[in-house]
Design a protein around this nucleic acid. Structure first.
Lengths: 97, 97
DNA sequence: GAAAAGCGTAGCCATCAGTCTACAGTCTGG
DNA sequence: CCAGACTGTAGACTGATGGCTACGCTTTTC
């Protein structure tokens, strides 16, 4: 709960991660993955978009380090990398909803 | 720590607030305001940008409800609206830094 | 009252982000 | 091997975002 003046690099990194969560679809994806691993197919259905669109958002979530991927044959399964990410979402919901 | 499927409106709202925090300058502004109220002048110096640029980011932070403003004569002072916002930042730092 | 300081905003431009279509690659089932 | 399912990516388009300059408004100072 302290509030140090952060170095520039951390500012960039942290705002970057937050930005990755700041899109409605990505926010929803993280919410969904909070309930457990999901396949690409189920995610596409759940968030109601094209598989291309979902694929790109999920790639961004991987790049930002929020989501991990597991491949089984031709299918991919996604899951949250760090469960604390969910606590972050829960807190955002608690504060701003 | 539950993870309900949120209604669309809340998804939009929450991702919107998070988006407001996702820019490096705005992230830094919130960090700075976490230490207490600051004048526009001091903010401009602290984040090292033009006053025009700072003004626009601060306007966005006001619109998103994260920051409150107080006017004294020709000067303006900004402060965090909800201290829990800082806890959110602190947690993001704790998780991702 | 005139000049200067402090802020906000409009207009412009460059860049980025989000979405779609189309296509390519990989795997499965027959 | 072939058809089809599943996924990733390249290219193009559109809208949003970020930054600057210039200007206008209010307040202070002299």
């Amino acid at each position: 709960m302290q509030n140090p003046i952060l170095p520039e690099r951390e500012i960039q990194q942290l705002s970057g991660v937050i930005k990755a969560m700041s899109h409605p679809l990505r926010y929803k994806i993280i919410c969904l993955l909070g309930r457990g691993e999901m396949s690409m197919q189920n995610l596409v259905k759940a968030i109601n978009t094209s598989h291309s669109n979902a694929s790109q958002h999920l790639a961004l979530l991987q790049d930002s380090g929020l989501v991990l991927v597991r491949r089984v044959a031709s299918r991919v399964y996604f899951r949250i990398r760090d469960q604390r990410t969910l606590r972050l979402l829960a807190m955002s919901h608690h504060v701003f909803a």
